[in-house]
Design a protein around this nucleic acid. Structure first.
Lengths: 115, 115
DNA sequence: TCATGGTTACAAAAAGGTGCGTAATTTACG
DNA sequence: CGTAAATTACGCACCTTTTTGTAACCATGA
């Protein structure tokens, strides 16, 4: 994990968090341990391919822990690592920030200023 | 701006911040007002096209303000809006979090637990 | 003609969806 | 009793869609 190549940590985090799913999966997992099928139910529009790929990516980044149990049918559980847990409030803060962004700001669209 | 469709603010922010460039551009702009060509210099690997597209997206999101000046050759300045400025510490926090993520965590890769 | 900040059209690359196959055991059925 | 189906979490191949890169073109006025 954390084998991304970049000088800038911000560039690296965004590499992990970019896209539609990572933050959502982290959000759902902040709820507690989930199985693959739980996450599928939580988000019905994600394909099973994407779900595995994204979970793998989050695991590699050290955000999610994957635990496989012996038995049949197969059982795999996912939960946030400690680091992953620490990420949650930061993502929440982004959501709050967005809520605070003035939607009425389009009062000044690309103005032309002369000097 | 802010005409994204989603119930979840987190999904919406990520729609804006996802990708390689948004956070970088915000970072460079947190430095102060920049011109198009300054941003090109700041990030030599972004294509001309991407730079305009990304700046446009950030402008639409209310993060970046674009100001066009009369004169020749043409002059356009970009800077962060107040909202954009408030976003900077949040992005920084993500970077700091990433720095703190234990890279040694691959000690426990996809363990198999039996019951 | 140059520089600045774009736009547009086309091509390449990356992301994403769909459907099939698989493992190993239990349950269901004739 | 023999066997077929169901179950869960994927991997893989193929195909479509989206994103991004490349390059060319445009306007301005000194």
């Amino acid at each position: 994990m954390k084998d991304l190549v970049s000088r800038c940590p911000i560039e690296e985090v965004m590499q992990v968090l970019s896209g539609r799913w990572p933050s959502l999966l982290i959000y759902y997992l902040s709820d507690g341990t989930k199985r693959f099928s739980d996450l599928q139910r939580d988000n019905p529009t994600i394909s099973h391919k994407m779900l595995t790929l994204e979970l793998r990516k989050l695991e590699d980044a050290g955000i999610v822990r994957r635990t496989e149990f012996e038995g049949y049918p197969r059982r795999v559980e996912y939960d946030l690592t400690v680091d992953g847990g620490r990420l949650v409030p930061l993502i929440d803060a982004l959501g709050d920030w967005w809520d605070g962004v003035s939607g009425a700001a389009d009062a000044s669209p690309s103005q032309i200023t002369m000097i």
